[in-house]
Every structure is written in C-alpha cells, then in structure tokens.
C-alpha cells in the first residue's frame, strides 16, 4: 500500500475511533446546555467553545462524527446490497431480466434524487423524533443511491454468466439462486467493495448538504450537516475560526476516503 493511502487509512481509523469513543472523550453530553456560557470562545473548559445555545462544540463534534461516520457506511451498505441484487440478477439472468433491470436503473439515474430526497425529507411529520430523522435520512440515501453501482455489477455478472465454472456448476444441477449467491457474486466482491467505498463520501456530502439546508438530521442530535449550519453566519466564522472545525474534519475525512480508493476505481 502506498504511504499516502496508509496515512489516509490511519487518519480514518483515528477519527472513527474518536467518534466511537465519544462517550469517553466528550467532556459533556451533546445536548447539555451551559446557559451562562453561550457563544463562549475556546477555553480550558470548552476546547472548541460553545454554540449559541451554550452547548459544548467539541462534544457535539464528537457525537456528530459518530452519526455521520457510522450511518454513511450503513447507507452505502444498503445501496451496495441493492446494486448487487438488481445488477447481479440482471447480469446473470440476461435477456429480458437484464433489459428490465437496467431500464429500471436508467430510470432511477435520471431522477433528480436530491430533489426527491429534499421532498421526502420535508414531508416527514412536523413532530418526527431526531432519531427517526437520522434513520430516515440515511435509509433514503441508501435507497436512492444504488442505480449507478448496479450497472457496474451487471456488467461484471454478465461477463461471468457463461464462464466455465458457472457452466460446470449449472451442469451439476446448481439452481440459479444458489449460483448467483455462491458463484457469481463472490468474484464480484472487489467491484462491490469499490462501490461501497465510493458511496460513503458521497452520502457524507449529501447529508452535509441536507443538513445545511435544515433538512438533515433533526436537532438536538448533532451531525456534520447540522453542525455546518453555524457557517451560515460567515462573518462570525471569520472572527471565530474554531467554527470551521466541523468543516475541517468533514473535508479531511472525505479526502481520506478519496485517497484510500485506488484511482482506477474512482468515478
């Protein structure tokens, strides 16, 4: 592995561990308010200061990283599983199955999914709980982001359809479902793995965009998206550079994900 990639993997592991250990590392709970210290600058007590509701920014950043970093891979897993199912079935069965599957993925790719996401997210009940908003946001990201990956998986499955080991398994009476699960999809693991890794930064950025627009994870739960909303007061960000900490962490993590991927796998 190239040193650059090793470095990126190291940073990702560090950030991931820090977010997992938010309970231990965070000075206080993400929703605890210090009403007398609203908008406080960094100090020994609050290393990244406090927000306008008096909540510790470092604690919110650590808990927010946990939400974004744990749920973006879950969304990527949903998207990759759907891509494997639709693309693998279409590519392996061929004929009309392939036409229908790929037609469906073409249709899905043509849909403006940010518009759909925005729409669906805004149609949630007014009293939706923060936890439900997190789950719904990331599940939607996963359900809408499978189409491009399905095309790649379909091409791979098509290439394997008439390979010798598949024909041999078929002559031994192996059924289509078993063939697909045990013989066609396993050789496509590198493709699925690459698609999974490509999807994670895409979903992190999508959640960040939704968060800035006020349609991502609901307060008081923190996520990188809603932490970035503080930047809307950009004049304050100029005089208080610690407000840029969530942005710095987001750019760092997304850059690390881009670096970890081999260049030939990048879209």
């Amino acid at each position: 592995m190239k040193p650059r990639r090793q470095f990126a993997v190291g940073i990702l592991i560090l950030v991931f561990l820090a977010s997992l250990m938010a309970n231990q590392l965070a000075p206080v709970s993400y929703s605890h308010q210090f009403r007398e210290s609203a908008n406080a600058p960094p100090s020994h007590e609050f290393p990244l200061g406090t927000d306008d509701l008096g909540r510790d920014r470092l604690s919110r950043l650590l808990y927010g990283s946990r939400i974004s970093l744990l749920l973006a891979p879950v969304a990527a897993l949903i998207a990759t599983a759907l891509a494997a199912l639709v693309g693998g079935t279409a590519g392996y069965l061929g004929g009309w199955w392939e036409r229908v599957g790929m037609g469906f993925s073409d249709l899905f790719m043509s849909l403006p999914w940010l518009f759909l996401l925005l729409t669906f997210r805004a149609m949630l009940p007014l009293n939706v709980s923060p936890l439900a908003s997190v789950i719904i946001t990331f599940t939607l990201l996963g359900l809408l982001g499978w189409a491009a990956a399905a095309r790649v998986v379909c091409a791979g499955a098509r290439a394997l359809r008439n390979s010798e080991f598949v024909l041999q398994a078929r002559t031994h009476g192996c059924g289509d479902f078993r063939l697909l699960i045990w013989h066609v999809l396993p050789p496509l693991k590198p493709v699925l793995y690459a698609q999974f890794w490509i999807s994670i930064p895409v979903f992190i950025l999508s959640e960040a965009n939704l968060g800035v627009l006020g349609l991502g994870v609901a307060e008081p739960l923190p996520s990188w998206g809603n932490l970035l909303r503080d930047l809307e007061n950009y004049r304050a960000a100029l005089t208080s550079p610690w407000l840029l900490a969530p942005l710095f962490l987001l750019v760092l993590v997304v850059a690390c994900f881009q670096t970890v991927l081999p260049e030939e796998d990048l879209p």
């Binding site: 249709l107 043509s110 849909l111 759909l116 729409t119 949630l124 939706v128």
Partner: peptide, 28 residues
C-alpha cells in the same frame, strides 16, 4: 419513448413518494 416513459415514471414516483411520506397533508 424513453424520455416519455421516464417523465411519466419520474412524476408518478415523485408524487407517490410525497404521498406515502408519513407527514403528508400536515400543514404548519
């Protein structure tokens, strides 16, 4: 034909997504 099919499907999909969302019809 593909454009027409996608447009019909896209519109219907969008409308359905909104309609089945749990908060549909709730107005502030």
């Amino acid at each position: 034909l593909i454009v027409s099919a996608t447009v019909l499907f896209g519109g219907f999909f969008g409308a359905t997504l909104v309609r089945v969302a749990p908060g549909f019809g709730v107005d502030e």
